[in-house]
Design a protein around this nucleic acid. Structure first.
Ligand code: MN
Ligand code: MN
Ligand code: MN
Ligand code: MN
Lengths: 258, 258
DNA sequence: GAACTAAGTTAGCCATCCCTAACAGTCTTG
DNA sequence: CAAGACTGTTAGGGATGGCTAACTTAGTTC
């Protein structure tokens, strides 16, 4: 049961593919549907029966599929969502086109309309905002990709020179925090004397705000000072200051040894 | 099979919940897991067996669950993703906290790490960009919500006065394009003389670029002039100009009668 | 028109993941 | 310590959505 229709994600995808095929080729054949969805034809037959039962398509065995009025309406909406999400990922964030489309085709079934509307509004706002000139996106992309290369280039390597438009400090912050597979540990795992860089700060807004106020931001360097016997409190040194964190706070901080 | 682990979304959620419970209460009991996931206890038992088989948790019948090293690592990553997505939706886009968390808990399983990294980078960039002052987000939210009220207020109602920070034209564009349930039709469905507003332009980048160059943008008002017998070409009037669209182009345009 | 081929269907299998109902431990309490 | 309450497990069933294998239908070729 996807967020919007009362169909499963799988059936929504079938419907979407049918609309695409009708638009592109005038008709949708079982074989082409199977190919696009990377499933066997036997699976398509089953799906077409379920869609027929829902009144979204009209088809008779061995004939090509057509969308009913309701099916066309729904398929168009799903496709619209898909295309907006893919465009956001590709054109704004610079995600590779194929990955963007794959992600979009998964997200489209689960994101709420509220989030989607707000995302659309945000994109629109950035484009229209007088303080954000139209080059923002391309400058972000060039800056991000520079950072990408640096991270991808290996550990010991020197960072590439960044172009002049990168905001000060951008590359010092942990930009690629999710794809970092290994080496990310909990703050509490550090031993006295260990130096590390903050990767992410999780937890409730209250805890996070307090930590951020103290300077515990992604990218910040710190040194473990002392861990009390039961892990509470934990003393760290950050930007020359000594901080004492409670166990519950420390548990929300992921770090990476430097 | 979620994008990152080789677990199903459901099992990733179980793991995430277990980590949360361990962090909050020191241990994870089957009953609490069932409650958080809104499933019956029998379902939990099954899930715990599968997670044990994957080596992610260690548990014996009727005892409380603990995470293995590998399980803790993975659960932490899933939770990190969840929290970042929820924070983006809530704190940047202004989505209601509960909706944001629900969306995040679905998106977290399907979004690629590439997209997530780039999203994190984009958020970071906006915060650090010298031309985008720190009030951008709050100004977007106040502006968007103003638009919200206007749209939600009903059709015939006068728009609320917008605060002075809204970019010129923001409210004229179709901001809430996804939650609009009814009344959105294809351009080709209009009859000569009908006036409509563009809701979205889909289709390939090439077609979209051409249409955008001609001024066919979301929010633009147009009037249908003439539809040739076979639907090709379609003549419309837009901002005083006459445009002739091919059928394939017109098919990518969704409009709303005004 | 028979033989072949490609497209599509049916039947039967399996995995996942939920459910209810019944049963089995464990804890509390009179 | 026995009864009852609570927690958790097992057994069995249903929906979904894949798969393979075998069959049917329809179109093409000789
Ligand atoms: Mn999809
Ligand atoms: Mn899609
Ligand atoms: Mn989830
Ligand atoms: Mn989650």
């Amino acid at each position: 049961m996807a967020q919007i229709s009362n169909l499963s994600s799988s059936l929504e995808d079938y419907l979407e593919i049918i609309l695409q095929l009708v638009q592109e080729q005038g008709e949708a054949r079982a074989k082409d549907i199977a190919q696009r969805k990377s499933v066997r034809m036997a699976s398509v037959t089953g799906a077409l029966k379920r869609l027929t039962a829902e009144g979204l398509i009209s088809y008779q065995a061995r004939e090509s599929v057509t969308l009913t009025k309701a099916g066309e309406e729904l398929a168009g909406r799903i496709l619209g969502r898909h295309e907006f999400i893919a465009r956001f990922l590709h054109e704004i964030l610079g995600v590779d086109g194929e990955t963007a489309s794959r992600d979009a085709c998964a997200i489209e079934h689960v994101i709420s309309l509220e989030s989607l509307d707000r995302l659309a509004g945000f994109v629109e706002y950035l484009k229209l905002c007088p303080e954000v000139d139209e080059l923002l996106i391309s400058r972000f992309l060039s800056c991000y990709n520079m950072g990408c290369k640096r991270v991808a280039g290996g550990r010991g390597e020197k960072p590439k020179e960044c172009n002049s438009t990168c905001p000060r400090g951008f590359h010092d912050r942990a930009v690629k925090i999710f794809s970092r597979k290994a080496g990310v540990i909990q703050l509490s795992e550090l031993k006295p004397g260990d130096r590390a860089r903050v990767v992410s700060v999780r937890g409730s807004v209250i805890i996070r705000q307090r930590l951020i106020d103290m300077g515990v931001l992604p990218g910040a360097q710190l040194e473990m000072q002392r861990v009390a016997p039961l892990g509470d409190p934990i003393d760290i040194k950050l930007k020359g200051y000594h901080l004492s964190l409670r166990k519950i706070e420390a548990a929300t901080i992921s770090v990476e040894r430097v």
